[in-house]
């Protein structure tokens, strides 16, 4: 199975094809609805983002609080389409990798192709299993948002599939 180390540049991602199973390792940032909204507001005000967006990876997840002795609680993907409205602006800032579940809009797919980014899908409702592949979680920003805060995660062999590859091919449009 292919392995991808994050952060990854668009050059590193070019060989990936929609539908392929992949194991991800390295650094990703959590962000979902509320964190996206705030980041877009910061961009509109020409202020600095709380995370370096160049070659960054974002995981759409709002984990449960970490139990004692573990870095994180249950941590599966949330529905990516809710982030569609915000995504092209972040891709413009250098974002190269997104992890979530479900379909993306035509606008997002177009921006993925323009920037050579990749959208990965993880198994929805497998939060306990996926948490086992998250080795570290460090708060970064927006802690008042609780489960929606931005947290830096270190992944190790995190199982997912290529959802939309850098050429715009979509796993959900493929035959079995």
């Amino acid at each position: 199975m292919k392995r991808v180390t994050l952060p990854a540049s668009s050059k590193d991602l070019r060989d990936l094809q929609a539908g392929e199973p992949v194991l991800l390792s390295g650094t990703v940032y959590t962000a979902r609805d509320a964190a996206h909204k705030r980041m877009i507001e910061l961009l509109e005000q020409r202020k600095e983002l709380p995370i370096p967006m160049k070659d960054a990876a974002i995981y759409y997840v709002g984990p449960t609080p970490a139990p004692k002795g573990r870095p994180i609680g249950s941590a599966g993907p949330t529905t990516s389409s809710r982030m569609d409205a915000y995504t092209p602006a972040l891709l413009d800032q250098g974002l190269t990798v997104m992890i979530g579940k479900g379909r993306r809009s035509a606008e997002v797919k177009e921006a993925i192709v323009t920037h050579g980014a990749v959208y990965f899908v993880a198994c929805g409702g497998a939060g306990a299993l996926l948490a086992h592949h998250i080795k570290k979680a460090e708060p970064v920003a927006f802690e008042d948002l609780l489960a929606e805060a931005i947290v830096r995660l270190t992944l190790e062999d995190f199982p997912c599939f290529v959802g939309v590859d850098s050429f715009g091919d979509d796993v959900y449009d493929q035959d079995q």
Binding site: V61, G62, P63, T64, P67, R70, G73, S74, A75, G76, T78, C123, G124, G125, A126, G127, A128, L129, L130, A131, H132, A147
Partner: peptide, 14 residues
């Protein structure tokens, strides 16, 4: 996931 959630008391889904 179902097995891990039950034995390790981590929620099935976040």
């Amino acid at each position: 996931n179902a097995e891990l959630a039950s034995t390790e008391r981590i929620p099935i889904c976040q």
